[in-house]
Amino acid sequence: MSFLLTSFLPGWLTLERNPLNSLLQGLVCACGISVLTSLMRVYLLLEESWSDKTDKDTTAQRSHHHRHKAGLGAKLQFVLVTATLAVVGSRVASLVVLEFCLRTVSAWVTARPESSKCLQQLLVQSQFSLGCALSCSLYFLHEGAPQRWLCLLLAAMLSWSLASQATRLLHHVTVLYKLHSSQRYCGICIGLLTSGRLLLPLLCRVLIVTFSVAVFSAISIINQQFLSATEALRFWTPLTICYTLLVVYMQEEQHSQPSSQVILNTVVVRLGGLLVLMLTVGHWADVLHILMCFLGEASCLIPNWDLVGAASSQDEEDYTDYAEREHHQRTQTQQKKQR
């Protein structure tokens, strides 16, 4: 089958891996994204239960929006993400990972103190980038393995099991957490009640480790494409300039637009910048794969747009609390000086 595709299609339209390996790799990446979104929804449901329920209607409405959208739509989304990540090559996946990591470091450095907005928004934006990180890491770690398909099959089985467990946990928390946490007879809900606040920091640590491995893999994968240092310099120089300009532009946009609009603009600007860059120094396959990345980002963000809204509302709450504390501290300082 792979020989027939290579014979009848142009080289830049064929997959860089065996179709079976590509499918298994895409399945692992899609399961990783599913685990992330399920645990994020679990954390938001726990956060709602901790907050003061002064408006029961609003709380009930928010809880309804954060529920897992099971059914045909969720299955189609999973299949679409799997197919997209199976087609996207390791080179473009590496570029997406490097851009996301650079933007994450910049956002973390410039974030307001004591703000959880940065964490939640980065987790929401990292869905497709996480899939690309897993893709290039698996490609790098399994490169040259004699039975690569068997390794990917074991990884796919493990990731499918983890994704299923995360989905069951989300369903359990959505339906039974309020009852079980009040009655204190469910071990899962009691554990979430006592240590659920550690879920968000735990997700962040796992993503830090995942993207650290992915950055090393991405740099190695990209450098393998060059035969000399001159070719590498010719590629890395415009790439570094492009990434720097993108980061500066997106940091300025964050101060002038709502958070949800910033996330949407970020996807368009950064993938558009990569598209222009690949038209200049890349291959036709890279251009095609970046266009596929637009589809992958949309399939991750649009079905989970309520998570974006939750991060935006959390940003407003954090900013209000931060402004009140700063105003209170300035008032106390002025009173002390007057005395």
Results as ranks from 00 to 15, higher is better:
S22G: 12
N18C: 10
S38T: 06
A30F: 01
L20A: 09
T37I: 13
N18P: 06
L44K: 06
Y43L: 12
G26V: 03
W50E: 14
V42L: 07
L23H: 02
T37K: 08
K53P: 04
Q25G: 12
C31E: 14
N21W: 04
S22R: 11
C29T: 05
L27V: 01
I33C: 10
G32R: 03
C31G: 15
S49D: 08
E47S: 15
V42Q: 02
E48F: 07
L44W: 03
P19A: 05
D52T: 14
N21M: 08
K53S: 10
L27P: 00
E47I: 13
T37W: 09
R41C: 08
I33H: 10
E48K: 05
P19T: 01
W50T: 11
L23S: 04
D52M: 13
Q25R: 11
V42D: 06
E47R: 02
S22K: 05
I33M: 09
S49N: 10
Y43W: 13
P19E: 07
S22F: 03
G26K: 07
K53L: 07
Q25Y: 00
N21Q: 04
C29K: 05
L46G: 11
L45V: 09
L39V: 14
S34V: 12
V42Y: 08
L39Y: 15
L44T: 00
P19R: 07
S22P: 09
E48D: 05
M40E: 13
C31Y: 15
A30G: 07
V35F: 06
S34H: 12
L20G: 07
V28D: 06
V42P: 01
P19Q: 04
S38L: 10
D52F: 14
Q25E: 00
S38R: 00
E47K: 15
L23T: 08
L23M: 03
I33D: 07
V35A: 06
Y43S: 13
E47N: 14
G26Q: 07
L20W: 10
L27N: 00
S49R: 05
E48N: 03
V35Y: 11
S51Y: 07
V28I: 04
L44V: 08
L44E: 00
V35I: 03
R41T: 05
I33S: 02
S49Y: 10
V28T: 08
L39Q: 14
G32F: 10
N18D: 13
V28S: 09
L39A: 14
E47T: 13
S34D: 11
